[in-house]
Amino acid sequence: MSIVREPLLKLEKITKRFKSLTAVNGVNLEVASGEKLVIIGPSGSGKSTLLRSINLLEEIDEGTIRFEGVEVGYVTRHGKRHLDRPQAISTLRAEIGMVFQHFHLFPHMTVLGNVMEGPLTVQRKPTDEARSIATDMLAKVGLSDKSNVFPATLSGGQKQRVAIARALAMRPKLMLFDEPTSALDPELVGEVFDTIHTLADEGMTMIIVTHHMGFARELADRVIFMESGNFLAQGRPEELFSAAQGNERIKLFLNRLL
């Protein structure tokens, strides 16, 4: 007897249009708790837009988002769909961590300040508690010694690890990585990858958009190949990469990367 578990995240018929361009074209996706999902695909295929739609940084045109079985983000009033109240959206975002390609650390706060900011301002935790959470998270990403410096003094890899710690400090149930290593020098990719790997080993649910096939091979439970707003193929990494042999488009893309 198997227990039917509700997926952590369930997307149905998500469509996002920018003027005449359809960035995401009615995709369906279920992400189970603890799953590591990697989305690959050429630039402009809609991977980032899909990821940003999940935590409502993009307002979708059609479709529904369910998080822990509850429909989130939008309400229907007078037969028309609207974004939910800002309060509700903030609450959802607080449960979903996001890591950006360009880090977007807060430059006017110290490293510790960056990581404390969520617990302090959003969760309104006392300073001592926020500091102790932040200290733990910085230890997790291996940057305890950088607590009191400003982000301007860090390398790209260090910045991205701080950004991961900042997201983790909110104790998210889902982590979204939007090309987390694309802005890094090649020699700095490893440290960020290791950090993400550690998280994965701890059982964090994550969706990673990347051009880095290392993630897909080593880390992913499932890889999705996306193009022109559609899922072209998906499966376990080894399946996808072998299936790719039969798909000219995927083969071309992978050959260019590998």
Binding site: N55, L57, P86, Q87, S90, T91, R93, A94, E95, I96, G97, M98, F100, H102, H104, L105, F106, E117, G118, T121, V122, Q123, A163, R166, A167, M170
Partner: peptide, 13 residues
């Protein structure tokens, strides 16, 4: 990106 990062950790406008 600063506004997005702030929103992404759950901050209000």
């Amino acid at each position: 990106g600063q506004m997005e990062a702030a929103k992404a950790i759950g901050m209000s406008y």
